[in-house]
Each structure stands twice: as structure tokens, then as C-alpha cells.
């Protein structure tokens, strides 16, 4: 790394986050489960294989249209398990609370965690609380870890011709949080897509045998997930801009701020890669499942330069869809 200090951009889910993990962390702890850098680790335990994951949640504001830090901390971890083909079962909950934090607000957050856990059918079986001095934390930070039972689904490698599908419109959570942060955009009322994705992945895995890849495009957005797929699967991806589902309010906010919605997080969506023959049926299954009404095919795996994601624009032009570098920042004019 060139930087002598950690920058905010190292936490953005883009290229700098990727480099931090790949260059500073993975080499120290290298082992087969970790090295895959998947959303969850697959580990063998007596009696079979489980998926294990952890995630920490820091969000400003803590309450935003469509969700809050509480439910988000459950869905985030449960979704990381689900997209690895696991049934989320148990979760830990650790709270780091800043001195002076309102107990009423804590109660609201805990209620929301309870509601989220119920929706995901996970049990919170262990936890921890720490209180830090005023000024040492931004209200509350939450960490959850989760264990899921792997279903034994056989994910095969992506090959040219496979189709790329999203379970719904993109960039909604990131846009909702950005809008909620700024007075000027509050009328926009973009609602986060924050929710469990297990119903979506289980519906698809039950009926479709050719699922190659599933990932929830959280931090860093769809662009990060697609680039990671292109790199790790050594394939080229072609995305069709005209097919990208985007809500007009998300698109409007992004236009105003000069931000690409594909770099904004989703918290209730899944990007799938399935065999070409199953693509239409996968979309049908998703559309019938709650939370998947906006599903659609957005592109395909192509023969070409591995690691590259090409966007075919609405006009038929071509360009690269790169991984984001840092947090999307609003532009000057």
C-alpha cells in the first residue's frame, strides 16, 4: 500500500478495500477457507460443512427510510450466508456503544434486530456489549457473526454464454442512505431495499440446477461484485445498460450527484449467474418470490479478456465498468 495511514476509502468496498484485505490481511492468515475471499467461509465440522461469516455495521444515519442499523446488522450477515448457498441458523451480536447513547434508541435498535432475526429465522445465541468513552465511537457500532448449514449445492464455474441476473433494482440502499444524510434530498424518499435474500436464493436453488454464482452487491455496489466475479472466475462479462433495473428516484439522485448507481450498495438484492438455458426461468421464479419482483437479465459471460467487465451503453457504445476506488463523492458542478 502506498498510504501511510488508513483512509476512509479503505472501507468503501472498492479497489482500496480489496487491496487492504488482499495485501495486508490474507497473506498473514492464509488458509484454504480464507483465501477464497468469499462472503462466507466454508468449513468442515464433524457431521458436514458449514458456512461461517462476520460483518460489522456502521451507518449514518442509524435510521433511514426502509431500515435501520439493527435490522441491517442481521440481514447483512444472514445474506452473506445465504449467497454462499447456506441456510442461516445462528448468529452472534456484539454492540459497541458510546457513553451517553440513548437507551430508548438502543431499545428501538434491539427491537429491530429481533424483527430481522425473526424474518431470517435465525437465533441470536451469543453476544457481547462494550461501552466506549464519549467521542470514541459514533453512537453505536454493531458486529454480527453467523453460522449457516450448507445445502450441498454444486456451483460450477462460469462459462461464456451464462447469463447474469439481478433480483431487483440496483443502488437503492446506498441512495437511500445518501439522501437521508442530506437535507436537500430528503423529499426524495428513496426507500432502502434492506431485507433478507434467503427466500430468493432458496427459491432459485430449489428449481434451477445451473446456478454458477450468487452474491449480494453490498458495499461497492454491483460494479464491485461484477469485477470480483470477472477477476476470480477469469471471465469477461458484458453488461447491457438498457436492461439495468434502476428506480427513477435512484437514477435522479445519482444524476444530481454525479454518482454511478452501480457503485451504490444494495442490501436486499442478489446477482446470479446461471446457465443460459435457465436464465428466463430463473427470472420468472424470482419475480414470483417476495423481494424479487424487479428481477431481470442484465448481461452475460463472454469470451474475451478475462477480468474485464464491459458495459454496452444504451446507444450501443462500449466502455469498461471498473471497480470503484473509494466512497462515491458528490461532484462539484
Amino acid at each position: 500500500m502506498n498510504e501511510k495511514n488508513i483512509l476512509l476509502a479503505h472501507g468503501s468496498g472498492g479497489r482500496l478495500s480489496h487491496n487492504l484485505v488482499k495485501n495486508m490481511i490474507i497473506p498473514l492468515f492464509s488458509n484454504p477457507a480464507l483465501d477464497l475471499m468469499d462472503d462466507s467461509a466454508r468449513i468442515c465440522v464433524p457431521g458436514g460443512e458449514i458456512a461461517f461469516t462476520t460483518d460489522s455495521f456502521v451507518v449514518t444515519p442509524r435510521f433511514f427510510p426502509g431500515g435501520d442499523i439493527g435490522s441491517l446488522s442481521v440481514y447483512g450477515t444472514a445474506n452473506d450466508l445465504a449467497v454462499c448457498g447456506a441456510v442461516p441458523e445462528y448468529m452472534s451480536l456484539a454492540l459497541i456503544i458510546e457513553e451517553g447513547f440513548s437507551t430508548d434508541e438502543l431499545s428501538k435498535i434491539l427491537e429491530s434486530i429481533k424483527h430481522g432475526a425473526k424474518r431470517c429465522s435465525v437465533k441470536i445465541v451469543t453476544g457481547d456489549t462494550k461501552v466506549v468513552e464519549k467521542g470514541s465511537g459514533d453512537g453505536i457500532f454493531i458486529n454480527t457473526a453467523g453460522i449457516g448449514r450448507l445445502t450441498g449445492y454444486d456451483f460450477r464455474p462460469c462459462v461464456p454464454g451464462d447469463h447474469i441476473i439481478t433480483s431487483g433494482d440496483l443502488g437503492r440502499h446506498g441512495a437511500a442512505v445518501l439522501a437521508a444524510r442530506e437535507e436537500i434530498f430528503r423529499d426524495n424518499r428513496i426507500t432502502s431495499d434492506c431485507g433478507p435474500v434467503f427466500p430468493l436464493v432458496s427459491a432459485v436453488m430449489e428449481e434451477v440446477k445451473s446456478v454458477k454464482f450468487m452474491r449480494d452487491p453490498t458495499r461497492g455496489g454491483a460494479a464491485s461484485v461484477l469485477n470480483e466475479l470477472a477477476e476470480s472466475g477469469s471471465v469477461e462479462l458484458k453488461i447491457n445498460e438498457a436492461c439495468l433495473p434502476l428506480s427513477s428516484s435512484v437514477e435522479g439522485l445519482c444524476e444530481a450527484l454525479g454518482i454511478d448507481p452501480l457503485y451504490l450498495a444494495c442490501e436486499g438484492r442478489v446477482i446470479f449467474v446461471v446457465g443460459r438455458e435457465d436464465a428466463e426461468r430463473t427470472v420468472e421464479i424470482l419475480r414470483k418470490t417476495p423481494g424479487g419482483e424487479g428481477a431481470g437479465i442484465i448481461g452475460e459471460v463472454t469470451e474475451g479478456r478475462p477480468g474485464r467487465v464491459i458495459m454496452v451503453t444504451k446507444l450501443g457504445g462500449r466502455r469498461i465498468l471498473d471497480m470503484p476506488v473509494g466512497e462515491p463523492l458528490p461532484r462539484i458542478c
Binding site: N5, L8, L257, G326, I332
Partner: peptide, 27 residues
């Protein structure tokens, strides 16, 4: 936001913020 990561001679606002500089992004 645009100026945040722009390099100066030997630092940037992003780096200064990481070192404790009080830097806010406005619209």
C-alpha cells in the same frame, strides 16, 4: 467531494482527515 482526494505536494485532504484534520464534504 472532488477535491478530497486530489494530491497536493506531499499530502491530500483525505490523508489529513485520517490524521485528524477537521474536513467536511458539502454539496
Amino acid at each position: 467531494g472532488d477535491l478530497f482526494r486530489v494530491p497536493g505536494s506531499d499530502s491530500s485532504l483525505a490523508m489529513e482527515k485520517a490524521l485528524g484534520g477537521d474536513i467536511k464534504i458539502v454539496y
